[in-house]
Design a binder for these strands. Structure first.
Length: 398
DNA sequence: TCTGGGGTCCTAGGACCC
DNA sequence: TCTGGGGTCCTAGGACCC
């Protein structure tokens, strides 16, 4: 029988920040918005507190009062992470920073530092792969691990190996994680939430009724807000209630494929393998403007942004060694309506000029009388072009 | 002054071919 | 002339996830 683990880093972004700024632990804190540079903080400190020479080694000594607060934020960013003391005020993930500032103006605001999070992400994944090589990357702070063929992976249902991984990650990075071990990915994912933070949960097939069925349907990875609302419309709130419905009844209402999947999920059935490798399907770049832009009135500004997006996506493709032949755009209008247009061309490309030309044709097929808040460029139907190319920042300008 | 950015997968209709 | 499958590709939109 398979033993699959799901590992979830605890409060990953905030925890990485606390490694640098331990003085912020326990305070209401929000991560979101633009880029921060530690050297800018240091430079400001040296101006405002010239009696001491501040260096990059002094990050842990920066006075708490010196950090930016939510109330000083101006812009259209959203919250990526809110710490527990901040959540007490009602702020949470995906909330606009301006709205959050009204709820908790004194919260510390740290802009996201993806480069740093990626560094720690690589570090903890390297630790895992050294111990259990069959690992599936599920984003910056999550992985699935197949324990089945790891020596000792069965001991105590996987708990022993999970403990070893937890300890090794903490020793290497100073970060904690929560792990769920179960017969498959679906159950392991739910199990990893049972005992947070720094916990381990082991779920066996026989635990379905006692541990899984009492949970709300929304806890199943793959049931989102829309499906959950529809289920609730039928009086189905808990996984046990979902399991009680006939497969055919679900298929008739949710479609043959999704209906059958809902039934399987409620019964804890999932045979997806742990995929160690995957090829990208598409690459894209998008940006939300600081203010809504109009195709005619803001033509020059929009055009420059459009060109930059095409250059960025072309650079991404070449850096990673891919080319694509479906080129498309995405627009979000000021009223939040979204449209996409794309076209497929004869030959694969990673050339910003070609991308810009075809994306430009796509733009002509949408309503440009409405003001826009977001513009995106996407390249799909990718093939590998071979070795990844080092793209200097100035490349692809023309 | 609510609502980011980067992905995957599925569905459904139409074109086109055999 | 009418009718009918099956299969693939393309396009647009939407749900969902991290």
């Amino acid at each position: 029988m398979r033993r699959i683990a799901h590992l979830d880093m605890d409060a990953f972004y905030a925890s990485v920040e606390w490694l640098r700024y331990p003085q912020l632990k326990g305070l209401p804190m929000v991560i979101g918005g633009g880029r921060r540079r530690d050297d800018e903080l240091i430079a400001r400190l040296n101006i405002e507190q010239p009696e001491h020479v501040w260096t990059a080694d002094d990050l842990a000594l920066i006075p708490v009062d010196f950090f930016p607060r939510l109330k000083d934020y101006v812009g259209r960013g959203v919250i990526t992470t809110a710490t527990y003391p901040a959540r007490q005020f009602g702020v949470g993930s995906a909330m606009g920073l301006m709205k959050a500032a009204r709820l908790c103006p004194q919260a510390i605001l740290l802009p996201v530092d993806f480069d740093e999070y990626r560094r720690y992400s690589r570090a903890f994944k390297d630790v895992i792969r050294d111990i259990a090589p069959v690992m599936e990357d599920r984003g910056v702070d999550e992985v699935y691990i197949d324990f089945t063929d790891v020596p000792g992976g069965e001991r105590e249902g996987g708990r022993v190996l999970a403990r070893l991984i937890q300890k090794s990650i903490f020793d290497a990075t100073g970060l904690t994680c929560s792990i769920g071990v179960a017969p498959n990915k679906l159950l392991a994912k739910m199990a990893s939430e049972f005992n947070k933070p720094n916990g381990i949960s082991v779920v066996h097939e026989g635990d379905l009724q006692t541990l899984i069925w009492p949970l709300p349907c929304r806890k199943i990875n793959g049931i989102g807000p829309k499906a959950d609302a529809r289920l609730q419309g039928y009086g189905i709130r808990f996984i046990g209630e979902l399991a009680a419905r006939e497969r055919a009844w679900l298929a008739a209402r949710f479609g043959k494929s999704y209906g059958a999947w809902l039934h399987d999920a409620a019964w804890g059935r999932d045979d997806r393998p742990v995929a160690t490798e995957s090829e990208p399907v598409s690459m894209s770049r998008e940006t939300t403007f600081e203010r809504d832009l109009h195709a005619v009135r803001d033509r020059a500004e929009l055009s420059a942004i459009f060109t930059r997006l095409c250059q960025q996506v072309a650079a991404d493709l070449r850096r990673k060694g891919y080319a694509g032949r479906t080129i498309g755009i995405k627009i979000t209008y000021d009223n939040f309506a979204k449209v996409t247009r794309d076209r497929t061309i004869e030959t694969h490309t990673a050339d910003s000029v070609v991308i810009r030309r075809h994306a430009g044709q796509c733009l002509k097929r949408v309503d440009l009388t409405r003001a826009m808040r977001l513009l995106g460029v996407r390249v799909g139907k990718l093939i590998k072009t071979g070795a990844a190319v080092v793209v200097p920042p100035s490349d692809d300008l023309f």
